[in-house]
Nucleic acid binder design. Structure first.
Length: 892
RNA sequence: GCGGCCGUGCCGAAGCGGUCUAACGGGCCGGACUUAGGAUCCGGUGGCUUAGUGCCUUCGCAGGUUCGAAUCCUGCCGGCCGCACCA
């Protein structure tokens, strides 16, 4: 047998698509637009299975949308800045740009080989000055609006590499590269004020109804809104009296305020120093602070870390009870959350309980269960459930939950506290002390201080004459880059050497695709108005939080700058599942990576794409299997055999083929629409197998229509081979740009088509029988129904079931007397069936004459509906097997 | 601890109230074609069976709702993922 070289077929069509610019698009107000986007890759140089899966899903969907008549924007680009390129440059003593461009070239090549239908004319690379120009521009707009600012912040500093280290690169407090212990340094850093949009970012999550629930939850958790109360605690003077000094704690449980027996500060809380200054505990406390904040900085927040603390020797006053409570510092209190100081209620918080037991701090019960009394002395753990307030002044006897608003009101009146909303979300630190990123457009003038670079001087380009043979940020060694003129006084100035975090590049790239060559703004607002929002975004779950949050933030900022009208960038989000091998994630270190290139060489891109879409639904994890790929390949060849020349014997199957075709047009469309790509493939397999079996008994004209449909329907999955077969059929290219065929609901159901005009009367026949039968098992009445009608029958019986509530048995009979059971032997079965079942579903293959004969042998005749049977029989006289009608009623 | 997800036949994986012994693919078994293998095609793949498409039993376990449950509800068991000293 002649084998088909699918790889060769693929490159043939890839070339044709490219030559004809088949997938390039422009704005067209007459057509509905569809914007489908995949998360652009970091150009590592090698496409892995995760990419292939991501793009195969997107491409199949996009091709479908295109066939459905949408003007589809489907772009691709490269998230090209970042550490790996710079590290590679250091390692090879080359330049990150050269390395990056090489990687992009390789990756692009592999994407082309997979046949993804991107509009390559819109390709972007974030490392190009034409792109990062607009990072700088956006930064300047944000600076103007106070959304970008600079402040002191702690950085991880590796004294050996002389560079800043990302926290992901700090392993156990040591530099991942040289194993030197990381130091903390205070440095001025640039921040973006994402917190200005906290409320909107949180609120709008509700609008994202087509996002996976878990992503929405993760975003909500990340923003971390919590409503609580700020309460002022006065400090007891060194001489033991309540002084004027106060501090504020944050709590979500003001109902437990009366049970406070100590308060705890974060070690780095500025108040701590003041408190212990000059006391006998000063040295001990300072030492503790150093241990927790410096030595244990990286291990401190690990779950296993022991909860440690110590008394400061000072006291605060519970503002509600006037009790003196000790002030502690402890490693588990975080300066970044709330106010950096908490109140502790050991009786009603498990962590406080453990801490109190460890340091022998007294307990006080303020909430009890309804029917029990709690004794602080004998408690074995904190009572964290709700209950009744006791020893809580004016609130005794109240339910603690219900009391919270009342207590807040009370605190407000007494001027000792107020309600507040606290968020976990912090401002976004974007400074990187690295070369391979967007330079921050700021200069520092000796006279005028910090000055933004005027917009017309943008882009500030990365200097090219930079060596990567030393550690540290090369920008600091580039004189050409460093020396600048002050835009204000024209005097000497020094350029900012920090670059922007790469997450910034990916926060608006989807807007750039709308007008990738536009040079007056980040993007053309008119183009964005046409294309945005992204209708479908596809990518890995690993970006569920940061990337998506930043992109949402940028969209809102750009909206407020008047550049776009959308509030949210991504309408629908799909997170594709992982690709595993034998259940394990593929990784270089495990050495179990399956290279898509190898599969591609062996079986061609269609096979890889189809297998990956077939083996699991898009969101489920996918286990790679070589035998699976092999059998997918064989199936594709089988599909190809449909197009071999052959002679048909007769057209007996025409009707069936047409019916099947209409059905498949409907189901495959629905399945792709729903991202059930695996099911769409199953439907196609079923269709192909069916056509293969029917080909000898289908007239050429009908069969060709069926084949044409198969090419269009299958083209989203295996586009190259469908193009090839389309050509074999003698059709003009491209199948990829055809129209998705229309289906006719009536043609799906052969019986319905055959006896269309009789439908109503048949329906009434069934009803008549059901009426006669009164839904209970009738004696002497048998209803014969064609299988296609079973659904309608079930529907009817269901309707009846609502009224009578006892039709379970009859439905069961309908189901059980299914055609499959009786097959050809139905005639023999007639006497039995009449005996047992009020309703019998007939096979298509039943010979009606025989059936009639069998019935008459029994001394029964067909009632009215016999006509129906005959009518449909006559429509297909040639058929060896008679087409059944709707129903036949046998009456005694 | 909080939040989300999932347990289906030998395996992967559909189904998400009645067309369910449960799609599709793999594997395995058998048959046809072949000198043989491969490929291709056909059939089988829960149990019992007087062999009649007859009976019974299965979708993690146990209950419940329903005329009817793999599908809905509750509880339990088992697995996965995200967040988390968050006050």
């Amino acid at each position: 047998m002649e084998t088909v070289d699918l790889k060769k077929v693929a490159s043939k069509w890839q070339k044709k698509w490219a030559d004809k610019k088949a997938f390039e698009v422009k704005e067209d107000p007459k057509k509905p637009k569809y914007y489908c986007l995949e998360m652009f890759p970091y150009p590592s140089g090698k496409l892995h299975m995760g990419h292939v899966r991501n793009y195969s899903i997107g491409d199949a969907f996009v091709r479908y949308k295109r066939l459905k008549g949408f003007n589809v924007l489907y772009p691709m680009g490269y998230d090209a800045f970042g550490l790996p390129a710079e590290n590679a440059a250091i390692k090879n003593n080359s330049h990150p740009e050269a390395w990056t461009d090489k990687c992009i070239g390789m990756m692009h090549e592999q994407q082309l080989e997979m046949g993804f239908s991107y509009d390559w004319s819109r390709q972007v690379g974030t490392h190009k000055p034409e792109y990062y120009h607009w990072n700088q521009w956006i930064f300047l707009q944000m600076l103007k609006k106070g959304l970008a600012y600079k402040r002191q912040s702690t950085i991880n500093w590796c004294p050996s590499c002389m560079t800043v280290t990302a926290s992901e690169e700090v392993i156990d407090g040591k530099c991942w590269r040289c194993k030197t212990t990381i130091e903390l340094k205070e440095k001025e850093q640039w921040f973006l004020k994402i917190t200005a949009y906290t409320e909107e970012l949180l609120k709008d999550i509700d609008k994202l109804e087509h996002w996976p629930e878990r992503v929405r939850t993760m975003q909500r958790n990340w923003i971390g809104r919590s409503e609580g109360t700020l309460v002022d605690f006065p400090i007891v003077d060194k001489d033991g009296k309540q002084g004027k000094e106060k501090f504020t704690i944050f709590t979500t449980r003001p109902d437990t305020l009366w049970g406070v027996t100590f308060v705890v500060f974060a070690p780095e809380h500025p108040k701590v120093m003041e408190l212990v200054k000059g006391t006998k505990d000063e040295r001990k406390v300072l030492e503790f602070i150093k241990t927790t904040t410096v030595d244990e900085k990286f291990t401190r927040s690990e779950e296993a870390t022991e909860k440690k603390g110590m008394s400061t020797g000072r006291y605060a006053v519970n503002p509600l009870t006037g009790d003196k409570v000790p002030i502690y510092i402890a490693n588990f209190v975080l300066m970044e959350y709330g106010t950096g100081a908490i109140m502790a209620v050991p009786t009603h918080d498990q962590r406080d309980y453990e801490f109190a037991k460890k340091y022998d701090i007294p307990l006080k019960v303020v909430i009890t269960p309804k029917d029990k009394k709690l004794d602080a002395a004998t408690m074995k753990e904190a009572y964290v459930d709700d209950g009744v307030l006791v020893e809580s002044g004016p609130f005794n006897g109240k339910n603690n939950r219900e009391a919270i608003p009342l207590i807040n009101e009370y605190l407000k009146k007494q001027k000792i506290g107020k309600t507040t909303v606290n968020y976990r979300l912090r401002d976004w630190l974007i400074s990187r002390q690295r070369y391979w990123g967007t330079p921050i457009p700021i200069v520092y003038c000796e006279k005028c201080g910090m000055q933004p670079v005027p917009e017309e001087q943008l882009p500030i380009k990365l200097p090219k004459d930079v060596k990567f043979d030393q550690t540290g940020n090369p920008l600091e060694r580039s004189k050409a880059f460093l020396n600048a003129k002050c835009p204000k006084c024209k005097g000497n100035a020094r350029r900012e050497t920090d670059t922007m975090a790469t997450f910034l590049d990916s926060s608006w790239y989807f807007l750039r695709y709308c007008s990738p060559k536009y040079d007056k703004a980040p993007f053309d607002p008119k183009a964005a108005a046409y294309w945005m929002p992204v209708d479908q975004y596809i990518g890995g779950i690993e970006h569920a939080i940061l990337h998506l949050l930043y992109a949402r933030f940028f969209t809102k900022v750009l909206r407020d700058l008047g550049l776009t009208k959308v509030d949210e960038p991504f309408t629908r989000l799909l997170c594709q599942g992982m690709v595993t091998l034998n259940g394990e994630t593929m990784s270089k270190s495990k050495g179990n990576v399956v290279d898509p290139g190898v599969i591609n060489d062996k079986y061609g891109p269609d096979t890889a794409r189809m297998f990956i879409l077939f083996a699991a639904s898009p969101e489920a994890p996918l286990d790679w299997s070589d035998t699976g790929a092999e059998s997918t390949f064989r199936f594709i060849l089988k599909f190809g055999r449909l197009f071999d020349k052959h002679e048909s014997v007769d057209g007996v199957k025409d009707k069936l083929v047409v019916s099947k075709m209409h059905r498949i047009i409907k189901t495959v469309g629905e399945e792709i629409e729903d991202f059930q790509l695996n099911n769409a493939i199953i439907s196609m397999m079923d269709y192909v197998n069916f056509l293969q079996k029917s080909k000898d008994h289908t007239s050429p004209k009908v069969f060709k229509e069926a084949l044409k449909a198969s090419c269009v329907l299958f083209s989203p999955i295996i586009p190259h081979f469908c193009e090839e077969n389309w050509e074999i059929l003698g059709e003009k290219p491209f199948v990829s740009l055809q129209e998705w065929p229309k289906y006719d609901e009536k043609k799906i159901d052969i019986a319905a088509e055959a006896a269309d005009e009789l439908a109503d009367s048949t329906r009434s026949d069934i009803l008549k029988v059901l009426e006669l039968a009164k839904i209970s098992v009738p004696k002497g009445i048998t209803l014969f129904v064609a299988p296609q009608w079973k659904y309608d029958l079930v529907k009817l019986v269901k309707e009846k079931a609502k009224e009578t509530r006892d039709s379970g048995a009859i439905i069961k009979e309908v189901m059980k007397t299914d055609l499959k059971r009786y097959g050809q032997d139905i005639v023999k079965m007639v006497p039995k069936l009449v005996e047992k079942s009020p309703i019998v579903v007939l096979d298509e293959k039943i010979e009606l004459k025989a059936l009639e004969a069998a019935a008459s042998d029994l001394g029964k005749e067909f009632d009215c509906a016999v006509k129906v049977v005959k009518a449909s029989e006559s429509t297909d006289a040639k058929a060896k097997v008679a087409m059944p009608g709707k129903c036949a009623i046998l009456v005694n």
